[in-house]
């Protein structure tokens, strides 16, 4: 508990339709932490993550965002016509990054399908492409919704390694997960 606070929520609540999903959720995430959100289907993990990202409205409570974040939802954000290379190039341009795209593709083990349109890629290859966005620009906080979905064993190890490196370098990760976590979490939050 030594790092700087990256994001902080104070008794945040969410309402879906007429139903209260959760209320009074307080969380403080510091650099170096890996926080896992746990809960049954429909308990509000995704909603909470979207609130953290500023995508969904906070029904009650307060949210203080200190650091910039990367977002990876359960959709990958890929266009059917894009190839992994053009997708990463596109977002590198939008975010003003001059990272070597080939290096990112190499790291994500996407060298072979780098120029294949996403509509012809496997679910795991699409996921790897989306995860490649995390490496385009350095942002302290990663918000990941079920990031291990569709990844094979090598992919899971790769992502676990990425998360470990990120946290060791002063970043933090908040991830919604169900099932086994192939990474060492510093904290688990039950929803």
């Amino acid at each position: 508990m030594s790092g700087a606070v990256l994001i902080k929520t104070q008794s945040v609540g969410a309402v879906r339709g007429e139903r209260v999903l959760f209320k009074a959720l307080s969380l403080e995430v510091r650099s170096g932490e890996t926080v896992l959100l746990r809960g049954a289907n429909g308990s509000g993990k995704t909603t909470f993550l979207r609130q953290l990202a500023g995508l969904s409205e906070v029904a009650s409570g307060a949210m203080t965002r200190v650091a910039a974040h990367h977002w990876l939802g359960h959709t990958n954000g890929l266009k059917a016509h894009e190839t992994p290379r053009t997708h990463l190039k596109h977002w590198a341009r939008v975010w003003g990054s001059n990272v070597e795209i080939d290096g990112v593709l190499e790291r994500m083990q996407l060298k072979r399908p780098a120029d294949v349109p996403c509509q012809m890629l496997s679910a795991g290859q699409k996921r790897r492409t989306a995860l490649g966005r995390l490496l385009l620009v350095e942002r302290p906080l990663w918000l990941l919704d079920e990031p291990f979905n569709a990844l094979d064993t090598a992919g899971r190890d790769l992502l676990a390694g990425m998360i470990e490196t990120h946290c060791a370098g002063g970043g933090a990760v908040i991830a919604a997960l169900h099932g086994d976590a192939p990474l060492a979490a510093s904290r688990e939050v039950a929803l």
Binding site: A53, G54, L55, H69, W71, G73, H74, T75, N76, G77, L78, K79, A80, W91, V94, W95, R133
Partner: peptide
Amino acid sequence: QADLQDGALDLWIQSGD
């Protein structure tokens, strides 16, 4: 609609632009 379904809209909204 495509942006909403494939998740690109989420990324645009958070791009700060």
